[in-house]
Design a protein around this nucleic acid. Structure first.
Length: 302
DNA sequence: AGGGGAATAT
DNA sequence: GATATTCCCC
């Protein structure tokens, strides 16, 4: 059915060659129960960089085979046939053979679904690209994190700092950050923002984070003389309200809710031209209990 | 291109 | 389960 004898001839190795028909996708969508065999996890080859999906017809197979001639990556083959002979024949020039249907989960580990026209480009890009070693997992030691935080602050806090700017700053000021890449910064910035949001949220509810962070810490994180910026408060409000049942259930000893002022009338401790909370529909469907809790949290700061 | 964040992997 | 990586949409 598929002749793979040309793949890998002349000492060339091809990365993922995935032969996958439309019918197989439909089958997998219906019931994700298919078994895959001979799946070979290749940790040295990041998935998605040179993944191929062939259509079922013989012509597109030939197109891809031609474009693969100069490729230099190991190859995987999938097909419907599970006869030993077919598998062995496909394994001549490939490193693995997947029998369809393949569970979506497994499939996604191996390939990116792309249109056929995209695939040739991927192959051509990889042709000139001798495989590189995979970068080791980044470790954000306290020291490195500290430098990161300093950079963020120097750039005006998490609201203004962007991964690219942070990266440039780190690389210009310090040795040892040269092989850091933007995506690692992005990822760490995401976690950093989340952690601050968590602190802000707890603070708004009148609690301290488990590390003892209090409002002063939050302020210093922001390098601000006032409370966390409204945009962040609004973000926290949004997620807090969305998860309210869960959050409230954890507040066994929540502050007594006796203030009937309600959230809308809270005077915020901001100095100037920041937008006010409430007074509009933006807070219209927030729960009264939560608003009162937050009201008290803020009031205690005044 | 690159920021942001969800999904995934380790 | 925390943390790092990858994917994907805007």
């Amino acid at each position: 059915m598929i002749d793979t004898s040309t793949i890998g001839a002349s000492g060339q190795r091809i990365k993922w060659w995935v032969h996958l028909g439309r019918s197989a996708f439909q089958e997998m969508d219906r019931n994700n129960k298919g078994k895959a065999v001979l799946i070979e996890s290749d940790n040295n080859s990041p998935v998605g960089q040179s993944t191929l999906v062939l259509d079922d017809d013989e012509q597109s197979i030939q197109e891809i085979l031609t474009s693969l001639e100069n490729c230099c990556h190991p190859c995987k083959v999938t097909s419907e046939g599970d006869e030993v002979g077919t598998i062995l024949r496909s394994l001549d020039g490939s490193c693995a053979y997947l029998v369809k249907p393949i569970p979506l989960r497994d499939l996604n580990m191996h390939i990116n679904l792309k249109r056929k026209n995209d695939l040739v480009q991927v192959v051509q890009q990889q042709t000139n690209n001798v495989s590189r070693a995979k970068k080791p997992r980044m470790s954000w030691t306290p020291l490195v994190h500290e430098k990161f935080v300093e950079s963020v602050q120097e750039l005006g806090g998490i609201e203004n700092a962007t991964p690219k700017k942070i990266l440039q700053l780190l690389q210009s000021n310090l040795k040892g950050f040269q092989d850091l890449d933007r995506e690692e910064i992005s990822s760490h910035l995401q976690k950093y923002r989340d952690s601050i949001k968590r602190k802000v949220q707890l603070h708004m509810l009148g609690y301290r984070d488990k590390d003892g962070t209090n409002s002063e810490h939050i302020q210093s994180i922001y390098q601000m003389k006032e409370h966390p910026p409204m945009t962040l408060v609004n973000q926290v409000l949004k997620t807090t309200v969305a998860n309210e049942p869960d959050i409230l259930s954890q507040q066994r000893q929540a502050p007594a809710a006796k203030n009937t002022q309600g959230f809308q009338s809270v005077t915020l401790p901001f100095e100037t031209n920041l937008p006010t909370i409430g007074g509009s529909t933006s807070c219209g469907n927030q729960s009264n209990a939560l608003m009162i809790q937050m009201d008290e949290a803020f009031s205690s700061e005044l």
